[in-house]
């Protein structure tokens, strides 16, 4: 009986922290930033995000000390015209995978305060709905 209670206590001590760190259920891979031209005040970041947990996860904001502002956007082509839309949040159902890729969804990094040059690494924090966050390293790549 005592052993059983101990098992339950251990089980809860494992489960409660897991439930509290929702952002750890979001697996972010292939994170990179396109090196912006020197005169450009903005850059775009890309990544793949997959929910490896069993509950829906919602990324509500993105922050980094690299830039004055970081936010999620999506480029769409409507009637031959390119438009940018702001994304308030990124919802991921269990096992769902989303690609932030050129000419589509991307992170918009405005007003860099550190050099965003090729081979540098920039840390960007993803915040989930429950307030937890996960830091991701983005590698800066020159694509041309």
């Amino acid at each position: 009986m005592i052993l059983s209670g101990l098992r339950i206590a251990i089980l809860f001590s494992v489960l409660i922290p897991l439930a509290a760190v929702a952002c750890e259920s979001v697996d972010i891979t292939n994170a990179w930033i396109r090196e912006p031209p020197p005169s450009s005040n903005v850059a775009a970041g890309y990544f793949d995000a997959m929910n490896i947990g069993s509950e829906e996860q919602i990324i509500t904001s993105i922050k980094s000390s690299c830039c004055a502002r970081v936010s999620m956007h999506e480029t769409s082509i409507e009637g031959g015209r390119a438009r940018m839309h702001h994304l308030d949040a990124l919802k991921l159902a269990p096992t769902e995978k989303v690609n932030f890729a050129p000419n589509g969804a991307h992170l918009m990094l405005v007003g860099p305060v550190v050099p965003i040059r090729s081979s540098e690494v920039v840390e960007i924090n993803f915040f989930c709905l429950d307030g937890t966050s996960t830091p991701i390293e983005f590698k800066v790549l020159r694509t041309n």
């Binding site: 031209p37 450009s40 005040n41 940018m84 918009m108």
Partner: peptide, 17 residues
């Protein structure tokens, strides 16, 4: 425009290639 973060540098990189 130069403050375009995504499609402009992407297209310009394509044009360079």
């Amino acid at each position: 425009f130069t403050n375009c973060p995504d499609i402009c540098p992407s297209t310009m990189a394509t044009l360079k290639q």
